[in-house]
Structures are given as structure tokens and as C-alpha cells.
């Protein structure tokens, strides 16, 4: 499904070069759920961007759905994602001028399945917002907006879903509900899930956890540590 080999990402600012990701390798199998943990500024979002083909590595190879991303230009990578990759973002990223239903329809519109309004409506019902299809994002609470975003991530039956801090903007109770929903749908659809978070509890729900420290990935068992210990351990490094 996804295979990264010796990924490096550096940014140059003036004469200084800052390496964010360093010789990083990773393989994710179909149907697997992987959590990537790390403190703020560790480069989690950079890694997610690379894995999803939103950005290009400075060095290294990345294979997505069997296609080497380095050989594709930006448009090629975009068309690889179309209909096959779903996203859930920390700040929901709903289009403010589109209704809940229209937001869910958006990925379908960009795939050959355009106009499947029924499918979109069913997904809204599955996330518990069947009655609120016509509402605009600003008429929905944070939790409800994230539900719409989850419906949008799954509506095109993607093979792979990326989630970037999906509970980061939500209170703990709402966050817990969202996580339940995300994993339930993921489970039902058999989708591969790559989740970036610093929420230990969320990471624990995944099949596998990886920790991003100093630009490298380490395997990590979330069951062995409580969330606060993780934070303190990270603080030491």
C-alpha cells in the first residue's frame, strides 16, 4: 500500500539548512492502522504531507499504491490521490460556502462518481448528521463539523485515509466520540489508516504506533506508557 525508503526532508532558510526528517523508512500494509506520535514541531505534519504526496522529499523514495511518487509531478500525484485517499484534518477544512452534504460530495465530484448525492447523504446519516444535510459549517458545532469531515473522508471508498490530529480542536468528550466513529467506520470499510497525533489514547487504538523523534521513526508500544509519561519522556529528548 505505502512504502517509504530513506525519506529525508530539509528546508533551507538563508544559509541554514534544517533537516526535519532524516533517513526515515516506513511500510504500511493494506488494512493496517498506523499512528504516528510526536510532540509539537517534531515534523509529524511534514511526514504526513510527504506520505500523502502533498509534498516532495529532499531525498529518498516513496511508493504509494505501487507508484513511485518521485516520478510523478504534482498533478500526477493529485490524480493518484483522487478517489483513493481520504483526509481528516485537525481544523476540519470544510468549505464554508458549501452545505454539509455538498462538502461530503466534494471528493466524489472530483472522481468519476460525481453526482452520487445518495451516497453522500447515506454517509452523513452514518455519522449521525442525516437531518442536517443542508446546514452550513458555521451552523454546526466542532464535533459535528469533524463528523462531516469523516463522512467526506470515507465517501469515495478510499483505500487509504490520512488523519491529522483529528481530535486536536475538540474537547475530550467530543474527541472520544469522534475517535470511536473514525475507527468504527475504518473497521467497517477495511480502510488503511495513517493517523498523526500526540494523543496517546488515540494512538492506542491503532494496530501499530510509531514515534517521531529527531526526524526519525521508532516503533513504539503505546500500551506500555501512559499519555503523560510519553510527554515527559519526549520532553527529555
Amino acid at each position: 500500500m505505502l512504502h517509504a525508503e530513506r525519506l529525508t526532508k530539509s528546508v533551507t532558510s538563508g544559509e541554514r539548512t534544517l533537516t526535519i526528517l532524516h533517513d526515515l523508512s516506513l511500510s504500511v500494509a493494506a488494512g493496517e492502522s498506523v499512528a504516528i506520535l510526536g510532540k509539537s514541531g517534531a515534523g509529524k505534519s511534514t511526514l504526513l504531507g510527504l506520505l500523502a504526496g502533498l509534498d516532495t522529499p529532499t531525498d529518498g523514495e516513496l511508493n504509494l499504491f505501487g507508484h513511485p511518487l518521485s516520478r510523478l509531478d504534482e498533478d500526477g500525484r493529485a490524480s493518484l490521490r483522487a478517489g483513493r485517499v481520504g483526509f481528516v484534518f485537525q481544523n476540519f477544512q470544510l468549505l464554508p460556502t458549501l452545505s454539509a452534504l455538498e462538502n461530503v460530495l466534494l471528493p466524489l465530484e472530483l472522481s468519476p462518481r460525481a453526482g452520487e448525492t445518495d451516497t453522500a447523504a447515506q454517509w452523513l446519516t452514518r455519522v449521525g448528521l442525516g437531518e442536517r444535510q443542508g446546514h452550513l459549517p458555521k451552523q454546526l458545532s466542532g464535533g459535528e463539523q469533524q463528523r462531516v469531515a469523516i463522512a467526506r473522508a470515507f465517501v469515495s471508498d478510499p483505500e487509504l485515509v490520512f488523519a491529522d490530529e483529528p481530535t486536536g480542536n475538540l474537547d475530550p468528550d467530543t474527541g472520544a466520540q469522534i475517535i470511536d466513529l473514525l475507527f468504527e467506520l475504518n473497521h467497517q470499510a477495511g480502510t488503511t489508516l495513517i493517523l498523526v497525533t500526540h494523543d496517546h489514547a488515540l494512538a492506542r487504538r491503532c494496530d501499530r504506533c510509531l514515534r517521531l523523534i529527531d526526524g526519525r521513526l521508532d516503533a513504539f508500544d503505546p500500551h506500555t506508557l501512559a499519555s503523560d509519561t510519553l510527554e515527559s519522556e519526549e520532553a527529555k529528548t
Binding site: 493529485a78 490524480s79 472530483l110
Partner: peptide, 9 residues
């Protein structure tokens, strides 16, 4: 976002 969902330039 559209780019993210696979829209070309």
C-alpha cells in the same frame, strides 16, 4: 483542499 482530493492544476 481540492488539490488534496486529487484535482489537477
Amino acid at each position: 483542499l481540492l488539490r488534496c482530493f486529487g484535482a489537477s492544476q
